[in-house]
Amino acid sequence: MALKGSLVIDTEKCKGCGVCITGCPQNVIALAKNVNAKGYNYLEMVDEDACVGCANCAVLCPDGVIEVYRVKI
């Protein structure tokens, strides 16, 4: 059995600190080249297939902008 995850990121509330990226074991996330309305390079998923839904990113996020979904396959 494997776990498959995905994230919903509130990009407008993300401050682009990048702390979440340090917690990701699968290199799923990175800061976007684009910026949000506040001028922050927001977080985005760059390797969706690799996400296992461990929620480390959400656990580390100071602004609570990440929702985590997970299924068993």
Binding site: A55, E67, V68, R70, V71
Partner: peptide, 8 residues
């Protein structure tokens, strides 16, 4: 049904 983490 698959949500495992959200802002409280």
């Amino acid at each position: 049904e698959n949500l495992i983490y959200k802002r409280t």
